[in-house]
Design a protein around this nucleic acid. Structure first.
Lengths: 239, 239
DNA sequence: TCATCGAATATTGTGTACAATTTTACCGTG
DNA sequence: CACGGTAAAATTGTACACAATATTCGATGA
């Protein structure tokens, strides 16, 4: 590559926002599932998705592969991809793993969290409460998951952050399948109380609240009739 | 598909062992890394690997993608794959995560393990000790990892099994990078003692031994000079 | 009516050609 | 001889054609 070409490249990288189609497609499909706009069991046909996002089938294929590693999508050999449908048994294992991880995470948070970080958590919780009031369920689901992941980041172990991120995603699927459709999924101010315990430096209380929070959420799961989403195009036209 | 074709397919599926090239390639590359025959940092050129295993570049590409999700290889955009080189910091996080998971796992094992399963563990430990005696380091590395994963399977949570499997793989890389090249990696009869504590139904002791085992292994890590493997063909000719 | 078959269609799987990028090797210049 | 710079080679990235497989649907006969 000549010197001229190299500098041209730097200019382009800086100005254009490199609108990374694969990453963007990944985020949109992932969000649609985690925000429960795409129901578990929904067929994800490669060509249809490719047309929706205006990318080639190979891009869709890579995205679906990644989602399948996160257990958000199930890849059935020769039969294509569907939004994953964890069994109730698997859902319970998700909560068991979360209790294990998040108990450790929150104790570490109490030790490590700085004033500034606690302020950020409060802001997140406040945004959650707003969503509750305005009935913005979709945003609430997202923020609620982010709260747990944010705690894990504070705890400082990237492996646990990654693992918990997958667990949170699977929790969303579990709730879509087994959660009470009416009523709230878990206590409205659970997160608020947890932040207060962190701020007070009370590790035992924070851990107790977290475990209670998770167990209550798990206990609210129950089998019920299920139906899948049909029209992919309609669903993604909103996003 | 006609009736005739369908039955033909069943016959083939039963008789031929479907020698699944992709799966086999995955296992061979994965094993070579985990058994430390391929050093961290070694470049994994797609075409070379394709020639070695007699598969197309697309197969190699999928295999490398999978290994990268397991954090066993690093995929550098436009610059190809290398055997992953976790930093010392990352290695410490691996051990931190392992202590968390394996403490829970072993307590669950003590509660759940049946006589038969304990016998299987003993057999595994005995095979490990054999390797120590005969100096079969490669097999020892494999069995040693399997011991931990077997415990996780007994504990009964598939998510923890999968997570720990990744952690064990990364441990192998960490030891390759930061372990003492001479001398043993960890206490020869640590595993044996753990099984005995499980058999005695002593959860506290089993957990204490496990945490000590992991911490000692972690403590033995230290930075030292590194060099990568060169000749991929020579390495895979042995397997 | 219902089950079964099989052709037609739809969808997924894979190798390969070509594009984009990086790496290497070489050359002239100070 | 070191230091850019350039062209050539090597390597990775991606779309697409075609193969393999699954699904749909109308026809046929018990």
């Amino acid at each position: 590559m000549t010197v001229v070409e190299e500098s041209l490249k730097r200019v382009r990288a800086g100005s254009s926002k490199a609108q990374n189609n694969e990453e963007s497609t990944y985020r949109q499909i992932s969000s649609a599932i985690l925000e429960q706009r795409l129901a578990p069991g929904t067929k994800l046909t490669e060509e249809v998705l490719g047309e929706i996002f205006n990318v080639s089938r190979s891009v869709i294929r890579r995205v679906l592969t990644k989602l399948s590693f996160e257990k958000v999508v199930e890849l059935r050999p020769n039969r294509g991809a569907v939004v994953a449908s964890p069994t109730l048994e698997e859902a319970n294992q998700v909560f068991e793993a979360r209790r294990l991880v998040e108990d450790a995470v929150i104790r570490s948070c109490v030790e490590r969290a700085e004033k500034q970080e606690i302020a950020a958590l409060k802001k997140l919780v406040s945004a959650e409460l707003d969503c509750n009031r305005t009935g913005d369920r979709i945003r609430w689901i997202r923020l609620s998951g982010e709260f747990h992941i944010e705690l894990a980041k504070l705890a400082g172990n990237q492996l646990l952050v990654d693992f918990l991120t997958d667990l949170v995603a699977q929790t969303s699927l579990a709730i879509a399948l087994y959660g009470q459709s009416n009523g709230s999924i878990c206590g409205d101010d659970d997160h608020q109380n947890i932040v207060e315990a962190i701020e007070a430096g009370d590790a035992e209380k924070a851990a107790r609240l977290m475990l209670k929070h998770l167990s209550e959420c798990q206990a609210s799961l129950t089998t019920r009739e299920q139906h899948t989403s049909e029209d992919l195009r309609a669903i993604f036209s909103k996003s």
